[in-house]
Nucleic acid binder design. Structure first.
Lengths: 335, 335
DNA sequence: ACTGGCACTCGGCTCCTGAGAGTGCCAAGT
DNA sequence: ACTTGGCACTCTCAGGAGCCGAGTGCCAGT
């Protein structure tokens, strides 16, 4: 069904369409891509590609444009992600190199991705599965309320409020904090939860301890990967003139953390592409998402990616996403 | 120059144009707004209003549309900000009521503002000038590096890294933290800086103390108002069909914290309006910004506002911004 | 299996025209 | 002095005709 030449035709059509955003016809095709056959032959191939769902015509007597299925085939079989050039690599490296802390790494990454792909970038906050608890702290802000701080070995700080009985003494709060801190130090999230359970079981007269432990358990349970940063939103304006209608739902989707997490959540350690209707979220079905996990080998920390028009330059976008993911991963591993 | 009727004509034109986004002519005007004069009279008034720069014609033989100057006059003299309805007030109140902490208040506020104005909302993180230090903490993450945490009475947590001599003992770190903590507790930022200076002067043999104090001083010095949150970006799609050209610079501006801060920075405690070219940032000169300070009376904590098309409903937007600012202020004062 | 030729389709461009909205101006009325 | 009706004028917009050209599908020939 799909001989070599038909695949070459599909590749040429996609290349041309990505570049010029115009339906491409048989004549232009043979002229621009040395296919060494006549337009008539190409026409037959195009007809057959259309029959199998890889191409479509906006209207009779216009050229063909690729369908989502066509892009899918292109991405799967017709393209090789070519590595970035040396200057590009150096640019990435120096741009990330100046980062001061975790927040800075993430915000630089998102700007970098948006910049080099000219699309909308999404970066999930990294989480280290091997992160351990470094420190906890309970700070009494009001008579009946305290602030619980949790610091992990990656420098991540989370917080929660704890309701206290009004009559609680400051010393009790402090000693409880010290006690819990000693118990969970250098434990992973899962280990800590187990230890905390034992701690509560052993001390049933105490009122402060259970309150703090509950808050801490809840804090440990909340998935710390639920933070996502978006950047380069202005690039939706460049997605194409035909995009104006579909733009509002896209912008809306980009504000929904939940949607973004689901988008990124499906990505593995390598580069994943979702094309058009392959995206579950209806607002994003006229876009493609290129994502990649990043972090240490065999230990994915988080995911990042870009959202662009289905008519995007897949090889180049995939190369950029992969490169940025690798550099950020390496950078985090070092720092 | 500007008698009562001309002002009424201007008001009617703006009202109509805001509603229908179409240039409005003399005939439609007398029909829709009981002006009790003939179209010819209105035409004379319109000609004179145009001559003075309040109106303009997209082309000959089209109706008139307001200029920035026209909107300015409208906002300054022709409109009264009418209070919100009871249900609206209740909606604001309940929506903000569920907020758990400061982050939550801000994120709810930005969503609320975007929702009720159908425009892009911008909220600056609040700062309490009377905030005092509640707690500091130094956590050693690596042999040569520690994390400094600062908690204020408003529940705000900031952090910084401290470089330590490798040979520093854990006990010294801890005692230093306790010592500094005791010294600055319940002090305002300014008082703390002074106290810290004395502390360093009195103990010149210590190596740990100066390192931590330096980091803390830097932390206190960084302006905590430099954080801004944006929401409702999808609403730019509703700014109008004529807006598509100007959209990219607007989206770009919305990603620049610096630009947003300057936008908001000019606002006073009451509602401020910048119309079109009154905005300094070129990318936003086809938009209007409605902003307001919020916080306790005579003690502005921060600013919030919305960005919309110059052709916006000013009275209603101003009412919404004012109401939200007041509610958030009240809410912060209580919690 | 490929190619050249040919008839056909259909969108886009241009030109034209008429309708309609809106204006500016003027002379007359109050 | 202001207001008004009338009128000529301008200019956009919508619709229709007609042409062009790009592109297709098909077929017969190599």
């Amino acid at each position: 069904m799909l001989d070599e030449r038909k695949l070459a035709v599909l590749r040429a059509i996609i290349t041309d369409y990505v570049e010029n955003s115009e339906p491409v016809g048989s004549k232009a095709l043979v002229e621009r891509y040395r296919l060494d056959v006549s337009p008539a032959t190409i026409r037959n191939d195009m007809a057959s590609l259309e029959e199998e769902g890889y191409l479509t015509q906006p209207h009779t007597s216009a050229g063909r444009i690729p369908t989502d299925k066509g892009y899918r085939l292109f991405v799967d079989r017709l393209t090789t992600v070519k590595p970035l050039s040396q200057p590009e690599k150096r640019a990435i490296s120096t741009f990330l190199g100046g980062a001061a802390d975790l927040d800075d790494v993430v915000s630089r990454t998102v700007r970098l991705l948006a910049q080099i792909t000219q699309q909308v970038a999404i970066v999930q906050y990294p989480i280290v599965s091997t992160a351990v608890i470094r420190h906890i702290d309970v700070i009494r802000l009001h008579p009946d309320r305290a602030l619980l701080l949790l610091v992990t070995s990656t420098g991540r700080i989370t917080q929660a409020h704890v309701e206290l009985p009004v009559e609680t003494r400051d010393e009790d709060v402090e000693s409880t904090a010290v006690r819990i801190g000693a118990a969970v130090r250098n434990l992973t999230s899962a280990q800590a939860v187990r230890t905390l359970n034992e701690l509560v079981r052993d001390s049933d007269t105490d009122t402060v301890l259970p309150a703090v432990v509950n808050a801490l358990t809840a804090l440990l349970a909340t998935d710390p990967t639920t933070r996502v940063v978006v950047g380069g939103v202005q690039n939706v304006a460049r997605f194409g003139d035909d995009f104006h209608a579909a733009m509002e739902p896209v912008l809306e989707a980009l504000e929904e953390q939940v949607v973004l997490l689901r988008l990124l959540g499906e990505a593995r350690n390598d580069v994943t592409v979702r094309i058009g209707h392959e995206n579950e979220h209806v607002g994003l079905q006229s876009t493609s998402v290129v994502a990649s996990g990043y972090g240490m080998p065999d230990d994915v920390w988080a995911t990042l990616g870009v959202v662009g028009p289905t008519r995007m330059n897949y090889p180049s976008t995939m190369a950029s996403v992969r490169a940025v993911a690798r550099y950020v991963g390496r950078f985090l591993a070092e720092g």
